[in-house]
Design a protein around this nucleic acid. Structure first.
Lengths: 255, 255
DNA sequence: GCTGACATATTGTCGGACAATATGTCAATT
DNA sequence: AATTGACATATTGTCCGACAATATGTCAGC
């Protein structure tokens, strides 16, 4: 982006050749990239054990410290995890790992509830719609269980928040769309506290249950429009909850 | 999630006290978390220089190596960047950083074009809609410039791809919604090659231009519905392009 | 077959060392 | 006065070697 081109004019003659800024990447980055490539390209598959640090150090011709730094670089993205707290294992970065990293970015950007809600309005109804097409019987059963539990904890704010979040996750998973799961992961994390605040302020257990039930019915019936519509309604309720509770709809969310 | 509860039954009596699995976090993680907290909480603001590695090592009471590993952990998320390739500076993780990490996760999940497209159908029209509300005159001008350039490169596939991507980014930025920007970043990155393939296969310059122009008009007129609608049309065109070109709509995308 | 003792492998942490490179200072030069 | 050059300093990147803690594997003994 900020391409520092030095084309200043001198009164004296200068050479006309221009050199491209040579990029001296640190070794730990190069190593990290090599490993990442091997993983993403499928050369090393998820579940495989990574060679030991000493091995890697020998193979790349660097010291163990450098390899360790390279590994740390990948560890945060969720590409690498631990098996039994020793050996590193290549892992599929799940929604949690992605969610954590993206949501911290959103926090730093001072994202407001409103912005977050707008994105959620794009994704949650979509999840509902897609779930109508792909939900398995097993997943429908899980949703039914969730509904049953919701009925029982209508007054327990903490428990209600749990099942509410779980319901949305179940719907999203029922869409069988990994891209959607990963994209909505950070929203999930950031909405958590806000949703909790709404629940504590307004005790909207009844409204939540009604909306969830309609979404569930729509999924079972394969009625995409209805699922989408009720998800939208549900999200609008949430928005109104924040506004009514004066919980700072246009304020930055806080982790 | 995978909560390893050991409730095995022994024939002999065991003590009834249960110990929670003590989590011995490595020091580099603890340090990393501390720094992350300081950053996310705003204690250190974006743009500030991080203390030197030696300082940090002293403050935390660990060695420089440990601090370095902690720093690498944060570096990948884009929270830390370099100022002039020496001192580390706290930076706002931009869309690119987030996009890179999330898109590599999507790659590993073998996300298909279809899944990606479904998510894009949730976000791109939304971006268009929101842009109608928030686009500044300057941004409208940038869009106009983009359209002008598009007209000139209709036959140059590579250049056309560039302006096409730029147009969508401009629209997204005009929404003034950071959450949306961050959420769609990975899609952007993964669509890049696919979009290029469509352009090379079908030379759809004219169709692209028409759609972009309508979106632009709608944004200038503040017509949310029209912007949304034409973005949808545009994305459907893209989908049809992949299908017609037999480019593997239900295949995993490749980086 | 299970247990326990032992050797081994691997990671986490330490401490120190040095090279490369920004950064700051200050005198000399034009 | 502004620029240049020489020099000291600070900071990061990389290396080496070491050791403790802990998983893992092996093997004798019951």
């Amino acid at each position: 982006m900020a391409d520092e081109r030095r084309q200043e004019k001198y009164s004296v003659m200068t050479t006309s050749v221009s050199f491209n800024r040579l990029a001296h990447q640190p070794a730990y980055r190069v190593v990290s990239e090599k490993i990442r490539d091997a993983i993403v390209s499928g050369e090393i598959r998820a579940g495989d054990l990574l060679p030991t640090e000493t091995d890697l150090a020998e193979q790349f011709g660097v010291t163990r410290s450098t390899v360790r730094e390279a590994i740390r670089l990948l560890e945060h993205g969720g590409i690498l995890g631990r098996a039994g707290r020793k050996r590193l294992v290549v892992t599929l970065p799940g929604a949690e790992a992605v969610g954590r990293s993206v949501s911290s970015a959103m926090l730093m950007h001072q994202v407001t509830f409103e912005e977050l809600w707008q994105v959620a309005m794009g994704l949650e109804p979509l999840a509902g719609k897609l779930a109508c097409l792909s939900a398995t019987d097993e997943e429908k059963q899980l949703l039914a269980d969730n509904l049953a539990r919701t009925e029982q904890v209508m007054e327990d704010h903490d428990a209600l928040l749990e099942v509410e979040i779980e319901f949305h996750n179940l719907v999203a998973e029922s869409s069988h769309n990994s891209a959607l799961l990963l994209a909505r992961a950070p929203l999930n994390e950031l909405f958590y506290p806000a949703w909790g605040a709404v629940i504590r302020a307004l005790s909207p257990g009844e409204r939540i249950l009604v909306a969830h039930r309609h979404v569930y019915d729509a999924i079972c019936a394969g009625d995409q429009d209805k699922a989408e519509e009720w998800m939208e309604k549900h999200m609008r309720d949430f928005r109104r909850g924040i506004e009514m509770g004066n919980l700072g709809f246009d304020q930055p969310v806080q982790g």
